[in-house]
Amino acid sequence: MLSSLVIAAILLLTRLTDAWGTLGHETVAWIAQSYVSSDTKDAVQTILDSKASDYMANVSTWADSFRYSDGAAWSAPLHYIDANDSPPESCSVDFNRDCGDAGCSVSAIVNYTSILLDDESKASLKLDAMRFIIHFVGDLHQPLHDEALDVGGNTINVTYDGDDTNLHHIWDTEIVEQLADGQDAEAFAKNLTAAIKAGGYGWDASTWLTGASLNDTKATAMTWASEANAYVCSDVLAAGVDAVEEGDLSGTYYTAHYDVARIQLARAGYRLGAWLNLIYTGQTGA
């Protein structure tokens, strides 16, 4: 039997996976850039001290790098909320049950939103808050960042395109890369943004901001987390753990479930842009 110290070490190491990977996070940020108002864009660029065309995309993975730096381990739990549910039979997220004492993605979004809303916040605090918000809204939309089972799928061993990896990693990276089909983040985001505006794939973006409000940031973030978590039961682990540990998931599994990654990337970018608009203009602008 593994000792408690060994188990703790495993849990720490397996939680180092990046939600969506670089391509996914940059795609979310590029989509958001398409939806921010001119006033919001000015505010964000001022905080980030950047006039670059990819001003949000180029900081979208900063939070993943930051947590590896000296003294930043405290930020690791903020990348996820561990839903202690029972997929595939039952999926649910409960803030009091699932957001630990060290915090979680939901509490982080609440905290960093409040910093951005506070005119008295120091510039250095606002810089970190902006970079965290850009990243954590993306994290929240990856279904396995809203799941505790097998450390969010990190300890579920799978095969993808002939490579041995884990379930969490393929949802972060391989499924997104296969979906992008060679496009870089900017091009991929342009295609997803066009689909949002056209109502492609049956999407109705007018419903994606239902209930979004700065008056209750926790409720808003919990709504988005619960929506993502539901996919763990309906798609990610619909047939159970044993099923995903068999065969190569780049085939029929990908075909059956890639649309979850596509809509969640689109929602994350759309909502991030709208959330920043709410902070700086009081209107979603979407």
Rank of each mutant, 00 (worst) to 15 (best):
I196N: 05
T210H: 08
T193P: 03
N215C: 09
D216E: 09
A221D: 07
G199C: 08
I156M: 02
A185D: 11
V232N: 15
T159N: 04
D150E: 12
H168W: 13
H168I: 02
I156F: 01
D150C: 13
A195K: 02
A187W: 05
T193E: 06
S206Y: 05
D181L: 09
G199D: 03
S213C: 10
T173S: 12
A189T: 02
F188G: 03
W208L: 02
Y201R: 14
T173D: 00
I170N: 06
L192H: 06
T217Q: 04
S234K: 05
V176D: 05
N191D: 11
L179A: 08
W208Q: 02
A180L: 12
G202N: 13
Y201T: 12
K197N: 13
W224E: 15
D150I: 02
D163W: 02
L149E: 04
N215W: 09
W171H: 12
H168N: 14
T210A: 12
A221M: 12
T210C: 04
T193F: 04
G162D: 07
C233Y: 03
V158N: 08
V232C: 00
Y231I: 08
A205E: 08
I196V: 13
T223E: 12
L214K: 10
H168D: 13
L209E: 12
I170Y: 01
V232H: 12
D146I: 06
A205M: 06
T223F: 09
L214R: 09
S213T: 14
G211N: 11
I175T: 00
W208P: 07
A228S: 14
A187P: 06
E186L: 12
G182P: 00
T210W: 07
T217K: 13
G202V: 14
G182D: 03
W208A: 13
W208G: 09
D204A: 02
D150V: 11
D172P: 01
T210R: 12
W224L: 03
K190R: 11
A194Y: 03
V232F: 12
G211T: 07
E227T: 06
